[in-house]
Amino acid sequence: MPNKNEARYNYILNLADNTLVLGQRLSGWCGVGPFLEEDLALTNTALDIIGQAQMLLNLAIEIKGEGTVDDLAFLRDQHQFKNVLLVEQPNGDYAQTMFRQYMIDSYHVHLYRALVDSSEKQLAAIAEKSLKEVNYHKERSELWIKRMALGTSEGLERLQKAANNLWHYQHELFENSEELDKLVKQGIAADPNQLQQNWLNDVSKLLAKTPIKTPQSGWRATGGRLGHHSEYLGKMLCEMQFLQRAYPNCEW
């Protein structure tokens, strides 16, 4: 693959893997949601996100010029996944799931808003399509955070714990690199600095409406884009890829 294509491929694969891994994670709530309506709602969110993953993976293989979406989803090993560590973190309780969801929803809204103008035409079309969906997801996760934070003391306590756990994973969403910087200058990728500013504005506005304290910065998660993952991804892939690994090319 020529260098020029490799940078585009890596960029799109990162976006695709973020959605694929998050979609699979959220699907873990299927059948065990806190109540039936919420079980359906969150798995419908997961479905939207898996749909986005499918479109992004399709674009990735178009750029690469070989392989299939299923190869990328089911036959890559952990170190070949480029997602940020935030999306592979365990679901935990509903506070942890919803806080992670809000972090990602807000990121997706600003990301897709920026990519609507991408010079990569198919990426712009995917962004236009997905933006409508993630706007709705964000409304939902925002409502849940308010409901839990302003409801009982237990809800607030659990949310604060989730915020403390997840806060330092944000930096990876906005990591820059020489390769990414070039894509931003070419009008293909969204500017990570701009994204981070918009994201921080959103999150601080929401947290200001609740008693949740913004966690102090200390450490920064990093490594996902290079394929260095936490212990949780491998276990998730074992389940997600089992069928294609055990019965190659199985269809139903």
Binding site: E37, L40, A41, N44, T45, E133, Y136, L143
Partner: peptide, 8 residues
């Protein structure tokens, strides 16, 4: 009742 019904 819920922001999502039986389908997305």
């Amino acid at each position: 009742i819920s922001q999502f019904g039986s389908t997305a």
